[in-house]
Write a protein that binds this DNA or RNA. Structure first.
Lengths: 248, 248
DNA sequence: CGCCAACTTGATAACATTCAATGTAGGTGG
DNA sequence: CCACCTACATTGAATGTTATCAAGTTGGCG
């Protein structure tokens, strides 16, 4: 039953087939920056927007590359990350439907982005998109709101990385996934992890081994159950919240 | 000689005396969000802007309080931080002239802000400021640009907190101060630390002791020299950059 | 059915924290 | 003006959480 619900989250990959993007039918429009565009301007928007399919594991942008496009995630999930010269990696976020890539740069991308699952993004020509935004204050406002929200989330993540224990980090991470799922109208009782333990580790500033051990720990305490390695069943949400806050 | 230059950075505290704010003369205008306001609208802006003086150590906003105002730093320096219930603290940023407080919230402040030195801020009534911004696209654009820059900086800080060693964190921190000073047109050979070791520790996700030890370490290696506890003399900037990147 | 990547588990080691004591500087009052 | 007081900073020793190194195990997929 629960499993059935989850399978719906991960449908067989059916990419957009249309060659010309039609923004009116876009499943992500209301969630994305495009919700700020008036309906009668959607065709102009479609003029410089094109869908792009990514297979799981495919890289969309490389940190440092010249930024010629913005992107909105239409379907699927991605991770964004930064690398140190010696290969140490910090995942700065996991992105889902409606999320925007490219808010922060000055000519070149400041992070790399890779698809976690099969993903569809909407590719927006930078120059034309910027002109469009200049003509639509509601869009500009929405971009700022999105940037502000991301900034607040980034500050929460700084608290996590700077001051929380491994257990608290993992609980905070799970809670974030639960809340996101609830925001999207689904219940937060079962969470499908679309990223590897290594991705989670690089997001939480830990190692794969510590993530694995900590996950086993909370499972043994009955806070969660695991069905396979990717399906987390939430048994005691209140406990997760308490741990995440550090009141434990 | 160097000390003389530094003393100019920290003049005796002479607050604005004017009761009515005059945005035209504002020393921070060109650096701040207000640079996006047309000159002939500065008087309207001044109508809901009032200067406020803070003594070193004074708290301007408390995380969680209802947000009724935005602020721009006119002179001085502040720290912004978040607390966990048990008192663990993460400093999410140090703010200086021209910086804006309040980019990210939804009714209430998401962080606390405290003056490091005697500081003057420009207090902006939230509602009226928002209306003003709605009427001035250039201001909206500037707010977004500022949010984007802060977001990029926040992502850099995530890399620091999640993946760098104590030594690398300290070098990154010093480099940030050096670069900011250079951006402001002064040379980066001497840096006055306006924050305590504890503030630095809470910014870098370390303890006071580790910051102190690490600082002593780089001093003993000749990378920097210390004059008292607050004046850092940069001896080997290239080395600091190399360490900060992790190539060491 | 078997392979390979991902995951888990265990033993050891390291870096940073914690606890503790001492040192130093700026500010206040006698 | 100096001594004292309090904050802040430094240094040392012991501890601990997480990383590292090293096997094994699982499970998804051809």
């Amino acid at each position: 039953m629960v499993v059935t619900a989850i399978q719906e989250v991960r449908p067989a990959f059916v990419p957009f087939q249309e060659k010309t993007q039609n923004c009116r039918n876009c499943p992500a429009r209301r969630k994305s920056v495009c919700a700020g565009a008036p309906v009668d301007e959607l065709d102009r928007l479609a003029g410089f927007a094109s869908p792009q399919q990514l297979m799981a594991g495919e890289t969309l942008i490389h940190e440092g590359d010249e930024a010629s496009h913005f992107f909105t995630i239409t379907a699927g999930s991605m991770k964004i990350y930064k690398l140190l010269p010696d290969g140490r990696r910090q995942v700065t976020g996991f992105l889902f439907q409606g999320d925007f890539l490219g808010l922060a740069f000055d000519g070149s991308y400041t992070y790399s982005a890779e698809a976690l699952t099969d993903t569809t993004v909407c590719r927006l020509a930078k120059r034309q998109f910027e002109n469009f935004v200049d003509d639509h204050p509601a869009m500009e406002r929405r971009l700022r709101a999105m940037a502000s929200n991301e900034l607040a989330a980034a500050q929460d993540q700084m608290v996590l990385l700077g001051r929380k224990t491994a257990l608290e980090r993992l609980a905070s991470f799970l809670l974030g996934l639960i809340r996101r799922q609830e925001r999207l109208g689904r219940d937060g009782k079962a969470i499908r992890l679309t990223m590897t333990r290594n991705d989670i580790a690089d997001y939480l500033g830990l190692t794969t081994e510590t993530v694995s051990r900590t996950l086993t720990g909370v499972r043994n305490q009955g806070v969660i159950a695991l069905d396979g390695t990717t399906l987390v069943l939430v048994r005691d949400r209140a406990r997760i919240e308490a741990i995440a806050q550090g009141s434990c």
